[in-house]
């Protein structure tokens, strides 16, 4: 195997590209669920209220709470994705069960 390539690939990703990718992933997910014509009309409100509740306890960014709705043949899926900031669990309040 190519030893140089091995070292290159095993390095943790660095630089702004990693941040770009993460931001894009969130943005695109959001854009896509917004485009979904069939989604229930309460979704934006639901998302806002969930965000407000979470922000009471953790300092999350508005873009870090993603509510995703999908409709398949016979079932509807409501997916809630919350990205906690680094170190969030150590800051007290929601630190979990002692």
């Amino acid at each position: 195997m190519d030893l140089l390539k091995y070292f290159r690939d095993s390095q943790p990703p660095k630089g702004s590209a990693r941040v770009a990718k993460e931001r894009l992933r969130i943005l695109v997910e959001r854009d896509r669920s917004g485009r979904n014509q069939n989604q229930p009309s309460y979704l934006p409100d639901l998302e806002r209220e969930i965000l407000a509740v979470i922000q009471k306890y953790v300092d999350v960014d508005p873009t870090d709470v993603i509510v995703h709705y999908e409709q398949e043949e016979s079932q509807e899926i409501l997916e809630l994705n919350i990205i906690l900031p680094e170190g969030a669990s150590e800051t007290g309040q929601v630190g979990g069960v002692p």
């Binding site: 290159r8 990703p13 660095k14 630089g15 702004s16 590209a17 990693r18 770009a20 990718k21 894009l24 992933r25 695109v28």
Partner: peptide, 17 residues
């Protein structure tokens, strides 16, 4: 620039789109 981590790689873009 991709190698230096300054530019999105082709895999990154493909994964997103």
């Amino acid at each position: 620039r991709v190698q230096r981590g300054e530019m999105l790689s082709v895999e990154d873009v493909q994964e997103i789109l």
